[in-house]
Amino acid sequence: MSEMKKTAITLNVNNETHDIIAYPNKTLLEALRDDLRLTGTKESCGEGVCGSCTVLLDGAPVRSCLTLAVAVQGKKITTIEGLRVGEKLHPVQEAFVNHHAIQCGFCSPGMILTAYALLKENPTPTETEIRRAISGNICRCTGYAKIVEAIKSLAEEGK
């Protein structure tokens, strides 16, 4: 521990710049949750499987539990807190609420960001494309049916 030095880390999160002082072994997930108090990003597995910790890095969904905070300086980080526009929910969030795609809600932030990134890249995904895109996001509650419906509803709008 003595050899490890704290460094200043500058993170651009949801279009805000944050400076933190941390040891390099801090993951992006820890930096977001513990330093920036952005606790919408969740940890469920801590090993890259479940997608609860998903954030967007320059628009692409990545696992913040397998990302070092020091290594993403200069990149644009989007968390679930950054999706909503003012008082209104983002349409993806709204679709999840309207279609009962949320039960306990633990997987929801990661799932919503993954869906958001998918729709950005492909506004009219097929059901198979949707299912594949969210396959790195584990939900224990819903059986995914309503999540797929929610995303599909937006895909149809995208047509």
């Binding site: 969740k42 807190e81 999840f96 609420v97 309207n98 009962h100 306990c104 633990f106 932030p109 919503i112």
Partner: peptide, 19 residues
């Protein structure tokens, strides 16, 4: 009906014990 608790879960506002 839309569930009353899910909007806050969709934004990351809902707090779980670890939060």
């Amino acid at each position: 009906m839309k569930r009353i608790d899910t909007a806050s879960k969709s934004t990351g506002e809902a707090l779980f014990a670890a939060d």
